[in-house]
Amino acid sequence: MKGIVFTEFLDMVDDTFGIEVTEEIIQESPTLSTGGAYTAVGTYPHEEIVGMVVALSKATNTPVPALIEAFGKHLFGALAKSHPHFLSKAGSLFDFLDLIEQYIHIEVKKLYPDAQLPSFETLSKEEHKMEMMYHSERSMADLAVGLINGAAERFNENVTVTLADQTSEHNGKQVKITIEHST
């Protein structure tokens, strides 16, 4: 997983819970390959961020999905800052979400060929409702929800995002995401 996810996560923990909590989760997480030293331009095992999220959940008594969703919103802000050109191509939230698979992920793969990205398939798109299918071996649909909420805020749109796991094992690898404009 790209280093920016790790650096932004630790920044968010610093800002939201304080540096002592950051220190605690690093110490409490299962073996971290770099001892918690991450650079945004590096690549690190996905399991390490999962470990730190679980440690954070324990340290703050907050459910893991809620933490991941909050992080998703924070991460969107960071990505939008470093790659503003992706946003300039869309005039609305739904148009932007369409671009993820058609354009954004393609460009990301050019810059980072080893990036393992989830896929977002647009199932339907109406004026006030959009349905997408999320596919990923990493089961991080909650992060996708947070990113979508961050994008909605950017486009000044109020939306409600709901998830429906499509797998029989409920393993989160294929999830239908419904985004609706709030009345």
Binding site: T7, I19, E23, I26, T34, G36, A37, A40, V41, G42
Partner: peptide, 12 residues
Amino acid sequence: RYERERKARKEA
């Protein structure tokens, strides 16, 4: 933190 930042900087 300083040690981690230094390590991350070197890696970068």
